[in-house]
């Protein structure tokens, strides 16, 4: 066998994620007065087919962190297993110490980058929020290990459609009510313009008191605009 053929066979037999299968769309996270708020819809897309409608894409991690994911759902669930293991082994020291959001974010960063180095990526964009010792933390990691912290973050389409809104309207001392309103405004824009977004979403909150993830709910929408109901009206060459 020639070496070129050897390479091809290798790729055929490989167990790498060369492209994602079931994916979730944008996650948005923001800091607000008492902590971090995060939101994501519950859709799981199989290509352009809406395959799952009740995927929980935000999970609490340890005592002080909240993780949201877009991208390959199975890879996200594998990441959750990694984190459960990490936290279990840390808890077994029973020394009263626990990982804060900064540590979890750093760990995720290393996992994502390590897997990209093996050309076997975890196909996700992750958002990690948390509060520990009165410190708010919000960061993100991509599939290839690019990571940063900011006052507001969003993955995928959210970076194009939600972050401009957040850059306009976000404030450090946003109340809970106003912060939820702001997130819903962003999710509504995404719902209208992101084809794979669905109108069933959750909002998750993390403060010094802990994590609460809301029940699924939907946003009020208005499709009555003329251009929505009759999009081709007036366009040349259409009827």
């Amino acid at each position: 066998m020639t070496s070129v053929e050897g390479l091809l066979v290798c790729e055929q037999d490989s167990q790498r994620t060369l492209s994602p299968y079931v994916t979730g769309t944008s996650v948005i996270g923001i800091k607000y007065k008492d902590g971090i708020l995060m939101t994501a819809d519950m859709g799981g897309s199989y290509g352009s087919t809406l395959r799952y409608k009740s995927v929980e894409r935000m999970k609490s991690i340890g005592k002080h962190s909240l993780l949201g994911a877009s991208g390959e759902i199975s890879d996200f669930q594998e990441i959750l297993r990694y984190l459960d293991e990490l936290i279990k082994y840390d808890d077994m020291w029973d020394d009263g110490n626990s990982f804060g959001p900064k540590e979890i974010h750093n760990y995720l960063t290393r996992i994502m980058y390590n897997r990209r180095n093996k050309f076997d990526p975890l196909w996700n964009s992750l958002v990690l929020g948390g509060v520990k010792n009165g410190q708010k933390y919000l960061g993100t990691v991509s599939m290839i290990g690019v990571h940063f912290e900011d006052n507001h973050v969003a993955t995928g389409f959210g970076n194009h459609l939600a972050r401009p809104i957040l850059r306009d309207e976000w404030k450090e001392d946003l109340s809970y009510e106003d912060a939820v309103k702001l997130l819903e405004k962003c999710m509504r824009v995404l719902l209208y313009r992101d084809r794979s977004a669905i109108n069933k979403l959750q909002v998750a909150k993390i403060t010094e008191e802990g994590v609460t993830i809301s029940q699924p709910y939907s946003l009020k929408t208005f499709w009555g605009f003329n251009a929505f109901q009759n999009p081709s009206k007036g366009a040349e060459g259409t009827w």
Partner: peptide, 11 residues
């Protein structure tokens, strides 16, 4: 289809 690229340019 989306293909994996291990690099990005972040400027």
């Amino acid at each position: 289809m989306a293909r994996f690229s291990p690099y990005d340019n972040n400027g």
